[in-house]
Amino acid sequence: MLLIHCPYCAMERPEIEFRHAGEAHVARAPDPSQLDDETWAEFLYFRSNPKGVHAERWRHVHGCGRFFNALRDTVSDRLLVTYKAGEVRPELPPQEHSR
């Protein structure tokens, strides 16, 4: 089982307490009615799906209940860093994302 650091509880907690909640930093347009269909579809359905470091939302659903963000390496399944919702995506030291 993975141990995931919850930035609100400020401790590592077992994976079973968490839920994955999709890609992070996907911003909704302030006025969707101004978008053409292609841009709206892009927002709704298309995600980056990288091989390597991926920014994603997680929720500590059976703990503090809060959503937060994580950088996870999709190759190794290692959670590299977690940070609170609303914070900017942190820069990783070069050695931490070798892929």
Partner: peptide, 10 residues
């Protein structure tokens, strides 16, 4: 204190 799981119960 914390919310957590006990078997299948929160």
């Amino acid at each position: 204190c914390t919310r957590t799981l006990f078997a299948k119960a929160e």
